[in-house]
């Protein structure tokens, strides 16, 4: 049976950045998921969560967990990404100077997600928002 969880993310709210990632990490730990798998989920979800905070106006994270996979769907209202191929390149970022000073916006987020996900689909409509679908296989040891 699948379980669903929903989290709301506000753009610019760095105080709560990482909340969803922390909740999901705790849940996977309780379910006895392997630590190497949890690490990959956390890297993907944190990067995607921070991207909403750093770039969008607001967004929603929907987590769907079943015996085989965790699906993380992040949909934001924001400026969107005009050139996804460029955004996927290591080191490319449109983050503000303030965000960069905090050590974010180094152009490593999307490549980190890509490296850790089993399946990663990103779509965007410039001027409206971006949507990410990240799937990680749980090696059958959850739920």
């Amino acid at each position: 049976m699948a379980m669903n969880f929903e989290y709301r993310v506000e753009g610019g709210d760095f105080t709560h950045a990482g909340y969803a990632s922390s909740q999901v990490k705790k849940m996977l730990k309780q379910l006895g998921v392997e630590s190497t798998v949890i690490k990959r989920v956390v890297v993907c979800l944190y990067e995607a969560e921070v991207n909403i905070v750093a770039h969008a106006w607001n967004g929603v994270i929907i987590i769907t967990l079943d015996a085989d996979n965790i699906l993380m769907k992040l949909t934001d209202n924001g400026p969107g990404i005009a050139d996804i191929e460029l955004a996927m390149q290591k080191g490319y970022s449109t983050a503000s100077p303030e965000v960069r000073e905090m050590g974010f916006g180094a152009g490593m987020g999307l490549p980190n997600i890509s490296a850790n996900a089993d399946r990663f689909v990103i779509t965007s409509e410039p001027g409206r928002g971006t949507s990410l679908e990240i799937t990680i296989n749980l090696n059958g040891n959850a739920v």
Binding site: F14, A17, G18, S35, Y46, V50, M102, F104, M108, N112
Partner: peptide, 30 residues
């Protein structure tokens, strides 16, 4: 760089940095 630490630090590592805002603790915990 926070994403660098997120992607490459290992469990149990001590993290050396000049970043002093609270997101550092969130990453250390995650």
């Amino acid at each position: 760089l926070l994403s660098d630490v997120m992607g490459h630090a290992g469990a149990g590592n001590a993290w050396i940095t000049i970043q002093s805002h609270r997101n550092v603790i969130a990453i250390a915990s995650l």
